[in-house]
Design a binder for these strands. Structure first.
Length: 602
RNA sequence: GCGCCGGUAGCUCAGCUGGAUAGAGCACCAGACUUCGAAUCUGGGGGUCGGGGGUUCGAAUCCCUCCCGGCGCGCCA
């Protein structure tokens, strides 16, 4: 279950950004509440939301039900009192009390036109929020081992982390995108030995089959060739202790270049690539972190119970160096040193997260694969320990991706390097399809990724449906130019023309539904960012596109509802302004998801 | 045995941090192309929100418990 993160809402009459209609009305509602039960009341639970049933007005508030106890009144009575206060507000046209004490608000008609005007004025900045208050957030994602190409599961983490970082930045956080390079464990020594074989191969030696336990993939052949070109035969005369660091460094560098290329194909980029090895080689940060924790009593020498239900045959009861993670809610204390005295992965991970704390981050988000789920509690415990309880770590687990083609599973065996790489998938179906499809699902649900379906051009394929909405909007502008040749090509130019539009002429039910959806966007952004849930953006865009397609089609049977109306320039301009609002929001949301917003899709 | 993640329409999934009569797509049935793009749209049937308790004005949502599926369970990363 995802941790509950309080959704920050402006308190009382805090001035809302002019384009944020819901925040504005919330402030008005809270002010009205304060007039009824006093300014000291706790209004944090008072919310304003769109009712499910459009017959209940434009917005509804739970204020009376939430505050009834504190006010010492019945919810209905309190609702009537608050409603009376709200009736004085010129923005609110109608106030009804309904059900157990809901207050339903119908806004004055001009509000929607003004909301659209705010969209046009803000342009690409529409929906941008300040709830992040420029607070620093570290988002760590991908962090795939530098031992080979990325596979599809890595891709999901990459896309999720990237979209989440985009979303947080748009919501006003100061975001750092980080990749932790696991370049210190045993697996990079295996990588080095594997590359060394390819090096000998490049020198002309017949190395035969790649032995078990080494990486067999062809992607190491260029590493061997590069080593041969740079080093000649020099390495063959060295003992392993000498050639291994050289080969390892070269192999890691080339693997990281490959991974960066794979990420670039998905338009995923990071600000910081943090080397695990640097924690040891640039002064022993891991040892220092352990020492600090030992001084505060959080590290001790002790024995652990053998794990229940696991295989106990190789269990050796011995005293070891343990971190007291149980003090922070973990199930057992966790070892920091292996039996050979080297650091566990957990130990360097603590030092790594301490470096985030030292770099000023109080908010960290780690994106991990689902198989690391058992690791969350100890890591959160460690973050609390190294920050003195001041930093928060949220871990987003990205579930498995099942790769299918027309419903049939695609083999993903890692054996002999024959797994389907992320790059192959991106090359086949394109960046936008991969990204949207992976984001059109909660991160903690298993994802079926069907190579045949994601390139299908139909309503069944959400990415095309949404992109088509954007293209269709642009198409309306193209067609409008035959009537109105002076219609500017650029969004900015059009925004200027639409600035004087008679938006009060947008009074059809379909138009109003779209206007209301657009007005919801800033609230959606804040909620999605606060919950760390980029998939909400994808679903919102689908809904907006659906309303647009639906309204567009109404114009077939009812020509007076079309966007371009001959002999009524005023109405046409107003309706084109609405299309501009749709296109602006679709483009904004797609950009957050990293998906292209095409102008045409023929 | 313990922990984490799931369980919502036949299938794939949403459900806005506890709101009103639980939604969408697919599939199925019935309709709309001398059109600003039919890559679209309109209508219809279809639900014990895994089961059972609890919390309260109100629960798919929070708590407890059980069932089913996935992942994990010193020194691998």
């Amino acid at each position: 279950m995802a941790p509950k993160i309080p959704y920050p809402q402006p308190i009382m009459t805090t001035p809302a950004p002019p384009q944020h209609l819901f925040a504005d009305v919330l402030a008005r509602v809270r002010a009205a509440c304060a007039t009824q039960i006093g300014a000291t009341a706790d209004l944090s639970r008072v919310v304003v939301e769109p009712p499910r049933d459009a017959g209940h007005g434009d917005m509804a508030t739970n204020a009376a039900m939430v505050l009834a106890k504190e006010a010492g009144k019945k919810p209905r009575d309190l609702a009537e009192a608050i409603a009376a206060a709200l009736r004085d507000d010129p923005v609110i046209a109608k106030v009804d009390v309904a059900g157990p004490g809901f207050i339903n608000l119908t806004l004055a008609p001009q509000v929607w036109g003004e909301a659209l005007r705010a969209v046009l004025a803000a342009g690409r900045d529409y929906g941008r929020s300040q709830i992040g208050a420029a607070e620093k957030v570290n988002v760590e994602y991908v962090s795939a081992n530098p031992t080979g190409p990325m596979h599809v599961g890595h891709g999901r983490g990459a896309v999720f982390g990237d979209a989440l970082a985009n979303l947080l930045a748009f919501a006003g956080y100061d975001v750092t995108r980080e990749y932790y390079i696991n370049d210190a464990g045993a697996q990079v020594d295996v990588l080095a030995r594997s590359a060394f074989l390819r090096y000998r191969e490049a020198l002309g030696e017949d190395v035969g089959a790649i032995p078990d336990g080494l990486y067999p993939g062809d992607y190491l052949i260029p590493v061997g060739a590069a080593l041969a070109a740079e080093q000649g035969t020099k390495l063959t005369t060295m003992p392993e202790s000498e050639w291994l660091p050289i080969v390892r460094a070269k192999a890691i560098a080339m693997m990281m270049d490959m991974i960066r290329d794979d990420l670039a194909a998905l338009d995923v980029r990071h600000d910081v690539f943090f080397s695990e090895r640097s924690l040891i080689e640039d002064g022993d940060k891991v040892g220092a972190t352990i020492a600090t924790l030992r001084n505060s009593g959080q590290v001790y020498e002790g024995r652990l119970e053998p794990p229940k239900g696991g295989n106990l045959e190789d269990w050796e009861d011995r005293e070891q160096t343990l971190f007291r993670s149980t003090g922070f809610g973990d199930d057992v204390d966790r070892p920091l040193l292996k039996s050979d005295g080297s650091y566990t992965y957990f130990a360097s991970d603590i030092a790594y997260h301490k470096s985030k704390v030292d770099r000023g981050f109080r908010n960290m988000i780690d994106v991990w694969g689902a198989d690391h789920g058992g690791y969350i509690k100890r890591m959160q415990a460690a973050v609390k320990a190294v920050s003195g309880g001041k930093a928060e770590l949220d871990v987003k687990l990205v579930q498995l991706v099942r790769l299918l083609r027309a419903g049939e599973p695609v083999k993903m065996s890692k054996r002999s390097g024959e797994f389907v790489t992320l790059r192959e998938v991106v090359d086949e179906v394109g960046r936008s399809a991969v990204r949207f499809d992976m984001l059109y699902r909660k991160n903690d649900a298993v994802l079926d990724f069907d190579l045949a379906k994601v390139i299908e051009a139909s309503r069944d394929n959400p990415v095309f449906y949404v992109q088509y909405g954007h293209a269709r909007g642009q198409s309306v502008f193209r067609n409008a130019r035959t009537e109105m040749p002076e219609l500017p090509e650029s969004a900015a130019g059009r925004a200027e023309l639409f600035g004087t539009a008679r938006l009060d002429r947008l009074d059809d039910a379909g138009e109003l539904a779209i206007l209301k959806r657009i007005a919801l966007y800033p609230r959606l952004i804040e909620a999605a960012a606060s919950a760390h849930e980029p998939h909400r953006v994808a679903f919102y865009l689908y809904d907006l596109a659906s309303e647009f397609h639906s309204h567009w089609s109404r114009g077939k049977d009812m020509p007076h509802l079309r966007f371009i109306i001959q002999n009524d320039r005023e109405l046409t301009v107003a309706r084109l302004a609405l299309v501009q609002g749709i296109v602006t929001v679709l483009a904004s949301g797609l950009a957050l998801l990293g998906v292209e917003a095409p102008d045409e899709m023929r």
